[in-house]
Amino acid sequence: MKKIRLHVNQHHLHGILYDTPAGRAIWENLPVTAKGNTWGEEIYFSIDADVKMEKGTEIVEEGDLCYWPPGSAFCIFYGQTPASLEGEIRPASAVEVVGKITDDVEVLKQVNGLPKVMVARE
């Protein structure tokens, strides 16, 4: 596992990237700074990484860090999205889980608008 730090507006969080091909591909492209988009309780932004989907999933957990192939996007899930059913967190379509936030993600529920996001190696 590789340690990372995430800055979302004024919020600072720690996380890990898994030692998988997808996690390593993203690690090699850090740091990344972007203007994020939100979709329910998900923040996402495009990244320039050669990530292959190996174990795509359509249900994720709070704090999961994922790659979404259709948008070449890095995704931070911290709650339900518009596609979620009761008690689940559902991306727009299948994602590759590449890591996890290790801090409490509740602070991300305060994020409004288009957040400024930075992901870097720790």
Score class of each variant (00 low, 15 high):
residue 1 M to Y: 07
residue 3 K to G: 05
residue 3 K to L: 07
residue 3 K to Y: 06
residue 3 K to H: 10
residue 4 I to H: 06
residue 5 R to C: 11
residue 6 L to A: 13
residue 6 L to V: 15
residue 7 H to D: 12
residue 8 V to H: 09
residue 9 N to V: 06
residue 9 N to S: 14
residue 10 Q to R: 14
residue 10 Q to M: 09
residue 11 H to N: 12
residue 11 H to Q: 14
residue 12 H to I: 12
residue 14 H to C: 12
residue 14 H to V: 00
residue 15 G to K: 02
residue 16 I to V: 15
residue 18 Y to G: 04
residue 18 Y to W: 13
residue 18 Y to A: 11
residue 19 D to S: 14
residue 20 T to A: 05
residue 22 A to G: 09
residue 23 G to V: 07
residue 24 R to S: 07
residue 24 R to T: 07
residue 25 A to T: 10
residue 25 A to L: 09
residue 26 I to C: 09
residue 27 W to K: 12
residue 29 N to F: 00
residue 31 P to G: 08
residue 31 P to H: 09
residue 31 P to F: 12
residue 32 V to C: 11
residue 33 T to C: 10
residue 34 A to K: 15
residue 34 A to T: 11
residue 35 K to R: 15
residue 35 K to L: 13
residue 37 N to D: 13
residue 37 N to C: 08
residue 38 T to G: 04
residue 38 T to Q: 14
residue 38 T to K: 12
residue 41 E to G: 01
residue 41 E to I: 00
residue 44 Y to S: 13
residue 44 Y to A: 07
residue 46 S to N: 07
residue 47 I to M: 06
residue 47 I to D: 05
residue 48 D to N: 13
residue 48 D to C: 01
residue 52 K to M: 07
residue 52 K to Q: 14
residue 53 M to C: 07
residue 53 M to W: 00
residue 54 E to Y: 07
residue 54 E to F: 03
residue 55 K to R: 15
residue 56 G to Y: 10
residue 57 T to R: 14
residue 58 E to L: 06
residue 58 E to H: 10
residue 60 V to I: 13
residue 61 E to G: 12
residue 61 E to P: 00
residue 61 E to Q: 15
residue 64 D to R: 04
residue 66 C to M: 10
residue 66 C to A: 15
residue 66 C to H: 05
residue 67 Y to K: 03
residue 67 Y to D: 06
residue 67 Y to L: 04
residue 68 W to R: 02
residue 69 P to R: 12
residue 70 P to E: 04
residue 71 G to C: 05
residue 71 G to V: 00
residue 72 S to E: 14
residue 72 S to L: 03
residue 73 A to K: 07
residue 74 F to V: 02
residue 74 F to I: 04
residue 75 C to M: 01
residue 75 C to D: 06
residue 76 I to S: 08
residue 77 F to M: 03
residue 77 F to C: 03
residue 77 F to R: 02
residue 78 Y to C: 03
residue 79 G to W: 04
residue 79 G to Q: 03
residue 80 Q to M: 08
residue 81 T to G: 09
residue 82 P to M: 04
residue 83 A to S: 08
residue 83 A to Y: 08
residue 83 A to T: 01
residue 84 S to P: 11
residue 87 G to F: 02
residue 88 E to A: 04
residue 89 I to Y: 02
residue 90 R to A: 02
residue 90 R to K: 12
residue 91 P to L: 03
residue 92 A to H: 03
residue 94 A to Y: 07
residue 95 V to D: 05
residue 96 E to K: 02
residue 97 V to C: 01
residue 97 V to N: 02
residue 98 V to L: 01
residue 100 K to R: 15
residue 100 K to P: 03
residue 101 I to E: 04
residue 101 I to F: 01
residue 102 T to H: 04
residue 102 T to A: 03
residue 105 V to D: 01
residue 105 V to G: 01
residue 107 V to D: 10
residue 108 L to N: 05
residue 109 K to V: 03
residue 110 Q to H: 08
residue 110 Q to I: 01
residue 110 Q to S: 15
residue 110 Q to W: 00
residue 111 V to P: 06
residue 112 N to T: 15
residue 112 N to E: 15
residue 113 G to Y: 10
residue 113 G to K: 11
residue 114 L to H: 14
residue 115 P to S: 14
residue 115 P to N: 14
residue 115 P to I: 06
residue 115 P to Q: 13
residue 115 P to D: 12
residue 116 K to N: 13
residue 118 M to W: 02
residue 118 M to H: 08
residue 119 V to Y: 08
residue 119 V to N: 08
residue 119 V to F: 10
residue 121 R to Q: 14
residue 122 E to V: 13
